[in-house]
């Protein structure tokens, strides 16, 4: 089988090209550092991207716009509970995950009980989560416990710890999607909701678990990001709204659902970091950088779509 027909190959190729171009400028210096930074920062995008991918797999119109607010809320509450005391990392993790469970369930109830379109439901809910985060945070910047901060910025076998977490989650999601009944049900629901329901798939249960998982992934990413960057900030999640959707699509998953792609998410997450650092190292200003990033995203989407048509 020709590897070029795999939809995820494009994001990895793009990431490799961006990496090569950046390294080419410095004639090979700093390649290790660049790869390390890409793995660290890419891990957060990959974790939220994996969650967003699950939701997008559910089918047209399904997307979670509350990811940034969930990240911020989870990070804020977790850091507040830990209040920089040593040995509380596990408590913080539990709280972050509990926040994820809470927001995920709340999102799902808005979508299911009130029959709101997911875009609007998660958008409106995210405003509320944001308010809770503002209220509980009160502008304080609590440092994460030193042990946790060391873990988040540390490395194991040469790879950043956060990247290991991201890889572990990716493997987990891959197994769930490709090898478990739940994954098959999710894909079936995304391909045709009506048919899946008639075939006996518990569609609502699948939707509920998916919306809860994306929120848990987001809260986990928020918890790690706050530990990594030395504290929670109210706007810490902002850039992950568009990022989470972008990595899913660049990664080769179908935006209309029913077809997901785990390796592509990681490739795209690396690419999104590498393309910015490439443009930075070529001295592009903020304006030019944004224009080129946007153009490249669209270019990849066009390349991937024409590829699919021909294949």
């Amino acid at each position: 089988m020709n590897p070029l027909t795999k939809p995820w190959i494009w994001s990895w190729l793009a990431a490799a090209v961006a990496f090569g171009l950046t390294i080419g400028l410095t004639a090979g210096h700093g390649a290790g550092e660049l790869a390390y930074a890409a793995l660290s920062f890419g891990a957060f995008a990959a974790i939220v991207g994996l969650g967003q991918m699950l939701v997008i797999t559910l089918g047209p119109g399904n997307v979670d716009l509350s990811i940034p607010a969930t990240m911020t809320l989870a990070a804020t509450l977790a850091l507040k509970a830990m209040s920089s005391d040593p040995g509380t990392a596990f408590l913080g993790l539990c709280i972050a995950i509990a926040v994820g469970l809470g927001t995920g369930l709340a999102n799902y109830f808005l979508i299911f009980l009130l029959r709101l379109p997911p875009i609007i439901a998660t958008l409106a809910a995210s405003l509320i989560y944001q308010s809770i985060a503002i209220w509980s945070n009160r502008g304080l910047r609590i440092k994460p416990p030193t042990g946790l901060a060391d873990f988040a910025t540390g490395r194991f076998l040469g790879l950043p710890n956060v990247a290991w977490v991201g890889l572990l989650l990716a493997v987990l999601v891959w197994i769930l999607l490709e090898r478990s009944v739940w994954g098959r049900m999710l894909l079936a629901t995304g391909q045709n909701l009506r048919v899946a329901r008639l075939a006996g798939v518990p569609v609502e249960l699948v939707r509920a678990t998916t919306y809860v998982s994306v929120a848990v992934f987001a809260s986990l990413a928020g918890y790690l990001l706050a530990s990594f960057s030395g504290g929670a900030a109210l706007n810490m999640g902002a850039e992950y709204l568009l990022m989470s959707i972008a990595v899913v699509v660049i990664g080769g998953s179908s935006i209309s659902g029913g077809n997901s792609n785990v390796p592509g998410v990681w490739g795209a997450a690396l690419f999104m970091f590498l393309v910015v650092s490439m443009l930075n190292s070529y001295g592009a200003g903020a304006g030019v950088r944004n224009v080129l990033t946007g153009t490249i995203i669209i270019g990849i989407v066009i390349a991937a779509s024409t590829r699919r048509v021909r294949a």
């Binding site: 997307v63 568009l242 959707i245 972008a246 699509v249 935006i255 944004n290 224009v291 990033t293 946007g294 153009t295 995203i297 669209i298 989407v301």
Partner: peptide, 10 residues
């Protein structure tokens, strides 16, 4: 949704 997402950067 994706094209406009890219265009928002542009």
């Amino acid at each position: 949704i994706v094209v406009t997402l890219g265009m928002s950067f542009v």
